[in-house]
């Protein structure tokens, strides 16, 4: 069976049941590795989300009710059950960064990406969003893209960063 990804983008269409099962197996089907599995699925899916179909496979493979997987997916803020961009551009909005004018960084990315906060670019490459503190208050305001954190941002630097991700695709 190929997973039906619903209204999802093309990246997700190549992500199949086999890929989900492989990730579950990588973690030995252990229930306590559920968070790690779901984070991996999000990343590997190319759509930064865990669709219902994939959650159902995880639930079946590790022997949990789907409702329990759903509970986890909705509890932790890093998860989404709706497709997002391949790269999440996350701007820290916590007090130290906000003081250092993180709103201006949001504006820089909005301009560079041509989307508003909370939206995804039409090419499904970027979703611009807020995040809680990422522990980089010494270089705030910061943006986090994937595992990389960028601080001391200027419009030029933002443009450079965004282009480096565009070039990867």
């Amino acid at each position: 069976m190929t997973v039906q990804p619903g209204q999802c983008n093309c990246a997700a269409e190549s992500f199949t049941e086999r890929d989900v099962v492989a990730i579950v197996e990588k973690y030995g089907r252990e229930q306590d590795q559920l968070l790690a599995m779901l984070l991996d699925i999000q990343e590997a899916s190319g759509s930064s989300c865990v669709l219902r179909e994939w959650a159902a496979i995880v639930a079946r493979e590790i022997g949990l009710p789907l409702s329990k997987v759903f509970e986890v997916l909705t509890f932790y803020s890093m998860f989404s059950t709706e497709p997002r961009g391949r790269y999440l551009v996350e701007i820290c909005k916590s007090a130290p960064c906000k003081m250092c004018k993180s709103d201006e960084v949001v504006a820089m990315f909005e301009k560079e990406l041509g989307i508003k906060l909370g939206k995804t670019t039409p090419d499904k490459l970027f979703t611009l969003m807020h995040t809680s503190c990422v522990g980089a208050c010494d270089i705030g305001p910061v943006a986090k893209i994937g595992e990389d954190v960028y601080g001391d941002l200027t419009p030029e630097k933002v443009s450079e960063i965004v282009n480096s991700y565009r070039e990867k695709n």
Partner: peptide, 11 residues
């Protein structure tokens, strides 16, 4: 789980 905003010493 250093989540307290403004804290980055564990990091």
């Amino acid at each position: 789980d250093e989540g307290e905003p403004g804290t980055f010493k564990d990091k």
